[in-house]
Design a protein around this nucleic acid. Structure first.
Length: 414
DNA sequence: TCTGGGGTCCTAGGACCC
DNA sequence: TCTGGGGTCCTAGGACCC
């Protein structure tokens, strides 16, 4: 049996943790750049605010209901997440952390689920202050489904018999199923399929044909046969990416390169922290797709490195060269990103037959930069091409404090 | 004026090999 | 006039997830 444990309205709950005055009041958390809503408390949902709503379109609702607004504070959420996961890990012989706010626990042959599961839930709530819901079922897909039901019915839902499963899927909307997104939903809707109960009656081959092999797995999972193994969490990272929207449009290649320099530096840092080097570096640019009156340009290019690298100098240089080549005058760029793929372990460096490798010095330089930045704060040492003005930098006007990560922002009991 | 960021997996098609 | 078969690797693009 799998237990999917998921925090309720995680970011909003985390913000509330440090300001109990917010209990019972509507709270929303905005995405980077204070762009759209990515978390809502129950009260905020009641106000009619939807996931993904752009802040500037719902400003009136936010004001009318005195909604408490926060910019996203990922350092804080990461820390709270760790606490929740540590608590969950005490209860399960194995725990797979699936995202910042949820984890699959393996239950083995536990008998008395009806007693155990509510106990786990109560303990996590007591120890961390974060409300969680737990769904239990024989497959991951059904555990996700059980969890969604749990959210609406007391916090736990156990589907441990075929009868319980049949009953649950009969009314479960197909659009809420794990693995059904917008496109598949459209397809299913046109066939008149509204519930998971109807969906799983389709023949196996239909799934394979229309939803690839992943659909076939889904079909098996819906009938209680586990097709997604417990340990399917990727052991090795496949790609590392850094991308951000700009506060304003960028129309100057030099300014664009400042942003790309910063993103590339961050990507190089991430690579080094993971002990990886990349063999490919992709750079992409976006204009604003929401503006039909603007000319659109979504160029992207993947550069192959002669020798896998993770030092800031190499990565920044390549990223800037590519970005300059992609840039087109007359376009208003809104976002850029750098993606490192073809990842190899730092130690498994494959040298190039014809190109001299002088990366050793640059690697040492990057190491030294990391040490200085660790001691004195990120960005203490950085590439000059990042620029100094940085008018494109993110907006976060409603940022809460580093309650758990900065000594001078720690909460005081008075 | 203002619409997030970071991932995974799968498939199709082209280039290349013998 | 008539031009194979079997394979790998790589990339782009599309679907999904939180």
């Amino acid at each position: 049996m799998f237990a999917l444990c998921d925090c309720n309205n995680f970011y909003a709950s985390a913000e509330r943790l440090f300001d109990p005055a917010l209990n019972g009041k509507p709270v929303v958390v905005l995405s980077n750049n204070d762009g759209c809503v990515i978390a809502r408390s129950e009260e905020a949902k009641q106000c009619g605010i939807k996931m993904g709503d752009p802040e500037f379109l719902i400003r009136d609702i936010l004001k009318k209901h005195h909604v408490n607004i926060f910019s996203s504070n990922y350092v804080l959420y990461g820390d709270i997440s760790e606490r929740v996961m540590k608590n969950l890990a005490r209860w399960f012989p194995r725990l797979d952390v699936y995202s910042i706010d949820e984890a699959f626990g393996w239950l083995g042959g536990v008998q008395d689920l009806q007693t155990l599961i509510p106990k786990i839930r109560a303990s996590v709530v007591m120890n961390t202050g974060i409300p969680v819901s737990i769904g239990v079922a024989p497959t991951k897909t059904l555990a996700k489904l059980a969890n969604k039901i749990a959210k609406k019915s007391g916090g736990t839902m156990i589907l441990d018999t075929p009868e319980a499963i049949t009953k649950a899927v009969a009314t479960f909307p197909v659009e809420d199923l794990w693995g059904v997104g917008r496109q598949y939903y459209k397809k299913l809707e046109s066939l008149g399929i509204e519930t998971v109960g109807q969906l799983r009656e389709l023949p196996e081959m239909w799934f394979k044909q229309h939803m690839t092999i992943q659909g076939q797995r889904m079909w098996n999972e819906l009938w209680g046969r586990a097709a997604i193994p417990f340990d399917n969490m990727p052991e090795t990272t496949k790609c590392i990416s850094v991308s951000r929207s700009f506060r304003n449009y960028i129309e100057d290649p030099t300014v664009l390169c400042e942003a790309v320099t910063l993103y590339a530096s961050r990507a190089a840092e991430k690579l080094r922290r993971a002990g990886l080097r990349c063999l490919y570096l992709q750079v992409f640019l976006y204009t604003n797709e929401h503006r039909e009156d603007h000319p659109q340009h979504y160029p992207s290019h993947t550069h192959k490195l002669a020798i896998a690298s993770n030092n800031t100098h190499d990565i920044v240089k390549i990223a800037n060269t590519v970005a300059r080549a992609l840039f087109m005058h007359g376009m208003k760029y809104r976002k850029a990103g750098v993606v490192a793929t073809g990842l190899v372990h730092e130690q498994e460096l494959q040298l190039h037959l014809f190109k001299p490798h002088d990366g050793g010095k640059l690697d040492l330089l990057s190491e030294a930069i990391d040490r200085v930045n660790l001691a004195y704060g990120r960005g203490t040492l950085r590439m000059a091409s990042e620029g100094y003005v940085k008018s494109w930098r993110l907006k976060h006007e409603f940022l809460s404090k580093g309650y758990t990560t900065r000594w001078h922002e720690i909460i005081k009991a008075v």
